[in-house]
Simulated assay, not measured.
Amino acid sequence: MSPWASVEVRDAVGSTNAELLADPRPWHVLTTDHQVAGRGRLARSWQTPAGMAVALSATVPVPPARTADVGWLPLLTGLAVRDALTALAGPGRAGDVVLKWPNDVLVRTDADRKVCGVLCELAPASSLAVLGMGINVHQGRAELPVETATSLALCGIDVGREEVVLAVLQALAHRHSQWASPSRMPTLVEDYRQACTTLGRRVAITLPTGAVQSGEAVRVDDAGRIVIRTLGRELTHAAGDVVHATLTG
């Protein structure tokens, strides 16, 4: 049974995350045809072209016993989007959609370009979190904001936005239920590690301080942090912007 209590669709909003943070209700979903003031990680902003992409935010419970693991919410959101897009891509394309730590969704068959970004925020003074995402669906190359972006259409995944919303909500409910149950967390963690193409690569990570660190991404730990090996040391980071270099080995 689906846990989603309500799914609201609007023609246009500033930011779906901001709307839900202003009125946090558990299991409430907001999606829009046109997001004009979207927000991303590291204070990035963008517009969602009208009718071309999915801008969606969902409010989920954070049980008191799981507050120590809230760092996994952004990662499980990216994983859920990857699950949904893999299912929509169809047989034979299971490895096409992958993750870049922490939650960028990339498509291998289009040069590892990014098809989805994620922003998760805790609702103030409540036990709720807002999980937000923007998924490029119908855009052509000229309609995308940067050369490193792609869309489902450009990757040969011919689906409507309604199909994307339904698939994502189903996958998101599943991954949240795993996260909410400590006994099921090991499966979630292992599934994330298997989907994360950052591991085993040389990377450069820009930290929140602005410092840049290069090294090999050796693992994602049980807290969802990236572990970088550099100059014989292993350093752990909970946040940062990763750029992939070439595969090791």
Rank of each mutant, 00 (worst) to 15 (best):
S126W: 01
G134F: 06
G160K: 02
N103K: 03
A94W: 08
Y192Q: 10
V115H: 06
N136I: 00
C116G: 03
T187Y: 14
W179G: 02
N103D: 04
G215S: 08
P145Q: 08
P182A: 12
R161D: 09
D112H: 13
T187D: 15
A123T: 03
R201V: 03
H138V: 06
R184A: 13
A211P: 01
D104T: 08
I157Y: 01
V189T: 01
I157Q: 00
A167G: 09
D110N: 14
A149L: 05
V146Y: 05
L144E: 04
G200D: 10
A129F: 10
A171C: 15
R202M: 12
R141P: 00
G210N: 04
T197A: 13
G132I: 01
Q178E: 15
R93I: 05
V159M: 07
L152Y: 08
R161A: 08
V203C: 08
R113Q: 01
T206S: 10
G134A: 06
M133P: 03
Q170A: 15
T198A: 08
A123G: 09
P102S: 13
H176P: 04
G156M: 13
V118W: 00
A195N: 04
D158H: 12
V168N: 09
G117V: 00
G132H: 02
D112A: 05
V130A: 14
G200W: 04
P145M: 03
R108N: 09
V137W: 07
A94P: 02
T206E: 13
L166A: 15
P182W: 09
V165H: 11
A180Y: 02
G215K: 06
E147C: 08
Y192L: 11
T150E: 01
Q178H: 15
C196I: 06
A123M: 05
I205E: 01
